[in-house]
Amino acid sequence: MSSVESLPRVRGLRLPHADGLVQWIVPLAIVLIWQIASETGLVPARVLPAPSDVALAGWKLLLSGELARNIWVSFWRAATGFVIGGSIGFAFGLANGLSQLSNKLTDTTLQMVRNVPHLALIPLVILWFGIDESAKLFLVALGVFFPIYLNTLHGVRSVDPQLIEMGRIYGMSDGELFRRVIFPGALPSIFVGVRFALGIMWLTLIVAETIAASSGLGYMAMQAREFMQIDVVVLSILIYALLGKLADSVARVLERLTLSWHPAFQKH
């Protein structure tokens, strides 16, 4: 692709791969400033440990295998909850978008449930499910359900009716109409819902793990807090940020692959 002219300029230099690096400049700069502030004593260690301490703590946990195990457990819970809540939300979104009857029957109930902050249900959930996996999965699924439901519903409803009419004229069956017109038309909205849901998934998981868990990142952070290991706490926070960013990047890659036809994605 690149002739040298097409490379982005980074502080006056033309560098290959500069495009991917530019986004890390600010975070790296923050870490650098933070390190300097800690070493000069501007920020005392009991308020905020230096990045070097955090990295050291992370290294130790990695070596003991604890870090990997906790990340894996959290990841599994998040993914499973996302799949459960997402599929149900998607199914309801399609049903209520396509069928008036379904919409009339279920939408009001769902809107009422939506307005209950799901994190406020945690005590109730613990009562019902105890503190084993199903409690966490339930909470994540509940949190993920609504953005996906709403955005799928909206996506289906806002498919251009002229395209649907065109499909009917050209003899498309209901199934074909769905596959070729309605679903692809709803996809951009569905992706918006997915990205929202990913954020809520993390939030829910972290909170649920802090309160009612014996493994996972949230649990690790809570333990660290009990034992005053601030560096591990900060480490957990940084890992949340990175994993959240990772999830969002995955969503964006998927989006770019399936929505390459969209005018917004055309390279001119």
Partner: peptide
């Protein structure tokens, strides 16, 4: 309107 499917 042309009414083309933008995703095809």
């Amino acid at each position: 309107e042309p009414r083309l499917l933008p995703w095809a």
